[in-house]
Design a protein around this nucleic acid. Structure first.
Length: 224
DNA sequence: GACCAGGCACATC
DNA sequence: GATGTGCATGGT
């Protein structure tokens, strides 16, 4: 498995080059994006982030002060805007109350504390927490998402129902505990997923196709 | 017009 | 503990 995970990474890097993932002008913006992208295409998140920027709402205090209706309007293009307004507000309240609104102070927490604290915030589950920890706080957790599970299960390495923590443990067991590597590996998976491994796969030109055994079936998501 | 997108909380069994 | 459902916009 260790060899497999390294091979996958090399193939993706050869194909895409370095990803410089995650986009965002500040750690706070990264955290906001992590919440907004829940089950949502990134291009829709970008519209909502642009609204927040133009309305001067990219700070925890501004979000807490702006009023529910105005926040919901700004988030509208990213979908689930009522839920996301609540979740974003919860995160901002947590940040202001616990850390004076400072992402830098949040990032100073030891990894285990940081993760437990984030998971205690309404609307922050394991993937969102790990996005924030890795990309905004720069601490080493491997981020698992739909594409991670889909790629490994389609290639026959894990069952499609494998749990989040089991999949995270698998990567963390076999890769060096390195923030830059974790960041780029997840970025490569997102690129690969977005381009080739969506609900209906496009394996012909996928950089990971060479790892498939000849004749190995790739199931689409309706055939589990 | 159906299907899909980088989840999560909550209800129910 | 496992499984099902609501949340909503915008692109293909």
């Amino acid at each position: 498995m260790k060899r497999t995970l390294h091979r996958y990474y090399d193939l993706m890097v050869d194909h895409f080059g370095p990803t410089n993932w995650w986009p965002g002008d500040s750690d706070f913006e990264i955290a906001v994006g992590a919440i907004l992208t829940q089950n949502t295409a990134w291009r829709n998140v970008e519209k909502a982030l642009a609204n927040l920027t133009s309305e001067n709402l990219l700070s925890p205090r501004a979000i807490l002060d702006c009023g529910e209706a105005r926040l919901e309007m700004a988030l509208k293009p990213s979908g689930f805007f009522r839920v996301k307004a609540r979740r974003l507000t919860s995160f901002c309240a947590f940040l202001v109350e616990g850390y004076g609104g400072s992402m830098g102070r949040l990032a100073e927490q030891p990894l285990d504390t940081l993760r437990a604290e984030l998971l205690g915030v309404h609307g922050i589950g394991p993937e969102t927490a790990d996005d924030i920890i890795l990309y905004a706080c720069e601490q080493p957790v491997f981020v698992v998402d739909t594409y991670t599970r889909r790629i490994l299960s389609r290639h026959g390495h894990v069952r499609p129902e494998i749990g989040y923590e089991d999949l995270r443990a698998l990567f963390e067991k076999h890769l060096d505990k390195n923030v830059a590597l974790y960041k780029d590996y997840h970025g490569q998976i997102v690129r690969t997923g977005n381009t080739y491994c969506r609900a209906t796969p496009k394996c012909e030109s996928c950089p990971l196709a060479p790892t498939l055994r000849r004749g190995q079936p790739i199931l689409d998501d309706t055939q589990k």
